[in-house]
Amino acid sequence: PLRIADAPGPAGTPTRILGFGTIADAPDPTGWVFPNRLQELDTRRGAPDQCAPGYADSTRLCTISQVPGAMACNGDSGGPQLQRNRKGRWELIGVTSGPGTPGVRCSQGPGLYTSAPAYTGWVREVIGRSG
């Protein structure tokens, strides 16, 4: 289990994303290559204006890679974006959603993440119904 953060950190906060999405950012799906092992990438919270206008807001987080030419891509959707809390423990702040700029290959642009803290109430409600 992973705790949902009370709030995502401000722009510039170090984060990490995880996924099994393609590691070959080919425009044609026949060129996609998927890893055998879980991939990790150091990222940071971006300011809303670092994604396309209207893409990032209080429920959608703009995310910037710390590694040139790398970002979440096809097959990573639904994967976690994590930040460390004050005690150094990982907590969930986002869920992979898609590109942060239309028409830009995933490895070249920012990523867009659904804010997990924005939906904590809904998550708790749904989990409570299934238990």
Rank of each mutant, 00 (worst) to 15 (best):
Y119Q: 03
S130M: 10
T59C: 00
I17C: 09
I17T: 13
V126K: 14
Q81S: 12
S58G: 08
P68A: 14
P53V: 06
G111V: 06
E125K: 13
R60T: 05
D49E: 14
A26C: 13
P35R: 08
P53W: 02
V67Q: 12
C51H: 06
C62Q: 00
T101V: 14
G19E: 08
R89T: 06
W32C: 07
A72T: 15
G88L: 05
G98I: 05
P29H: 05
L61Y: 01
G98S: 03
R89L: 06
E125F: 11
S65T: 12
G54I: 04
C62N: 00
P29A: 07
G46T: 09
T96C: 08
G131V: 11
M71N: 10
N74K: 13
P29L: 10
A5R: 07
C51F: 10
S115K: 03
T101E: 15
R44H: 12
S58C: 00
D57P: 00
G9S: 05
A118C: 03
A7I: 03
A118H: 05
R89S: 08
T13V: 04
A24G: 07
D6G: 12
G88T: 10
T43Q: 04
P117Q: 09
D28L: 04
P14Q: 10
P8K: 04
L41N: 06
I23N: 03
L2Y: 07
V104I: 15
S107C: 12
A72D: 11
G131A: 09
